[in-house]
Amino acid sequence: MEKNVEIKLLSNHTAVAYPVGRLDVAVSAELEDQLVKSVEENSIDKLVLNMENVEYMSSSGFRVAIALLRKLTDKGGTLKICNLKPAVKRIFDVIELTSLFEIFDAEEEALASLT
């Protein structure tokens, strides 16, 4: 299986995930599997999704973010998103769901909001 995401584990059940490339229907199911598996295996409660390496995202990618939000919320955790490129941020704005996610400009801000 091709790796679509790098995950950096931090202390206190916290991690930062770095998805890579185009998040479309061709990769979203695999990406979701990789992220959900990592959340379970590493007991991650607080996750920052750093989107700095994602140039494009379709609704399939959006579904991954919703699945992660659901997974973390169900276990009392949180999901933060940061470093959205303009074309990707537009998807969140267009679906009018920016309020559903906590979005930050930088990873440091997202991590600081977890403490």
Binding site: S58, S59, F62, R63, I66, A67, R70, T73, V94, I95
Partner: peptide, 23 residues
């Protein structure tokens, strides 16, 4: 798209057509 059902896991997706109409 039904956000509530997507969040509860009762439905997945439904955003594509909405996105097309919006952009």
């Amino acid at each position: 798209p039904d956000i509530r059902k997507n969040l509860s896991g009762d439905k997945r997706g439904g955003f594509g057509v909405h996105l097309v109409k919006s952009v």
